[in-house]
């Protein structure tokens, strides 16, 4: 359980730095988008640490591109 706690603390610390730094120089748009990406990343990491079922992007891409790459691979492996 230590991993998720450290991760959350680190994400909060990063968020505070982003909030204060960007707010201090009037970059509110930058602050909003940075925090948005940070929250996505923190949730994603947390889901992995808590062993939640996470979709794997490489599996998605393999499934989508299967009609294209499989015939090519079959042709390449022909006679090997």
């Amino acid at each position: 359980m230590l991993g998720p706690i450290i991760l959350v603390l680190f994400a909060i610390a990063t968020g505070i730095v982003i909030w204060r730094h960007n707010g201090g120089v009037g970059r509110f748009r930058e602050r909003g988008w940075s925090l948005f990406i940070l929250v996505i990343g923190a949730l994603y990491s947390l889901a992995i640490l808590l062993n939640m079922p996470i979709p794997n992007p490489t599996d998605w891409i393999s499934a989508v591109l299967a009609p294209i790459y499989k015939p090519i691979l079959a042709w390449i492996e022909e006679g090997m």
């Binding site: 994400a11 960007n22 930058e30 988008w33 990406i37 940070l38 990343g41 994603y44 992995i48 794997n56």
Partner: peptide, 24 residues
């Protein structure tokens, strides 16, 4: 996103890249 700097996005992106590399 029409932002004035890219630097503020680096650390947030690291939060996605590291876990993504573990499960890729």
């Amino acid at each position: 996103l029409n932002l004035s700097t890219y630097r503020t996005l680096i650390v947030p992106y690291a939060f996605i890249i590291v876990p993504l590399s573990l499960i890729a």
